[in-house]
Design a protein around this nucleic acid. Structure first.
Lengths: 219, 219
DNA sequence: TATACATTCAATCAAGTCATTGAATGATAG
DNA sequence: CTATCATTCAATGACTTGATTGAATGTATA
């Protein structure tokens, strides 16, 4: 007995969901959301062997979540389209609202470092116009170079201690990173507060800003 | 070695995605999107044994996708919130845009029965105001009773042939069903066209209409 | 209180997924 | 046209998931 079109569609949708159903693949997607990347770069950042990363990437590709192109000896992967960002955003939203586990992690780790409401994209746009804030990008320099918020200053988290002098203590700092729960911006905010700065984080990361069409700069 | 908060969050998000990663569970969710249902009703409609349906429901519950309450001897399940509809919608959108398999199924089955662009919710609202269309709900009577589009006529697909006389041949018919690719409305449209009616389908189903806040009627 | 009935649990087996290893591709550079 | 290097493939074993069966739980009615 062959399955009907209804089951075939459900099976197709399920195959996409299964591709999202692994922490390593979600992490790879977060990195790809920053921009195109090669297999080796992704494997390093996600802490995977190259062969393992390659296999996860191929699963993501089969599911239509990422696309790839060859550039010389390298194969560069990217998100298939901005709909994938929306899908991951919905996933996060549902998990935030309905999973006690997420609440536990947020309370136990993230809220310890930032008890304040995040700044929304609209609020940040408004305040930047008034010149009242320093927008701080705490991602590694190569990700910053590939694209960042207009006027943002790049101080990777690892350099923050050493480069505090570059920040104006009179300005409020709004820090952002790769995504809503990217650890870098939370760490940055905790460090800055400890030094007496006024610091808050952007509600989510660079990819969402870009996808919202609010304009980006590249190096 | 304990995992950090970043990996823990990815793991939590992945657990939600995994719950969506099975055709039977997606089908169960489609039925729950119509309204609250007991285990037995769901198991019948999805073609599963009761024990199997119960286990899938518990996975969905653990993932925060559905909630349940006890009513006498029955346990009634429902979607956890409307965010779940949004998540499934994103999933469908990504699959539609990026999976060749979906394109194949749509071409091979659905477009054979309805080659026309679907009517959007806004278009339908407008035309109903002018009294130009018959809104046809082809779901089973109990789903219709639990909630339907304002002014809709209920003729379950199984009764359609016998009840064609109830439909005004001068009106355009807009048929809808459980969701965008619900087979019932496609079959209804093919049958109606064959009888000389002008028939189109709504872009998606009852749950999306309700979630859009456009108003519903109950029996 | 005993019985019926809806649902869940527990145990089983088959099938699928994951990470690792080492070999195989396929493109560039000499 | 051979060597090199990035990536992918194939095979393995540990682990997880899915469906089935029959027993257990818990609520309502006689």
């Amino acid at each position: 007995m062959s399955i009907g079109p209804k089951q075939a569609m459900f099976e197709a949708f399920a195959s996409v969901a299964r591709a999202l159903g692994h922490a390593h693949r979600l992490e790879i997607l977060e990195h790809l959301a920053q921009g195109e990347r090669g297999v080796e770069a992704l494997s390093e950042r996600a802490g995977l062997s190259i062969a393992n990363a390659s296999q996860h990437l191929q699963q993501l590709k089969r599911a239509g979540l990422v696309a790839s192109r060859r550039d010389g000896k390298f194969v560069l992967y990217r998100l298939a389209d901005d709909g994938v960002l929306g899908l991951i955003g919905s996933l996060r939203q549902v998990a935030e609202r309905n999973l006690a586990e997420v609440d536990r992690i947020v309370r136990g780790y993230f809220s310890e470092r930032d008890s304040m409401e995040p700044v929304t994209r609209a609020q940040l746009l408004e305040r930047t116009r008034d010149g009242l804030v320093t927008v701080l990008d705490v991602r590694p320099a190569d990700e910053f170079a590939a694209g960042h918020l207009p006027g943002a200053v790049n101080i990777p988290l690892s350099d923050l201690e050493a480069r505090l002098a570059e920040l104006d203590p009179g300005h409020e700092i709004v820090a952002y990173c790769r995504s809503a729960y990217c650890v870098l911006s939370f760490e940055a905010i905790a460090a800055l507060r400890a030094r007496g700065f006024t610091a808050r984080r952007l509600e989510d990361g660079y990819p969402e800003w870009r996808a919202a069409g609010l304009g980006v700069e590249t190096a």
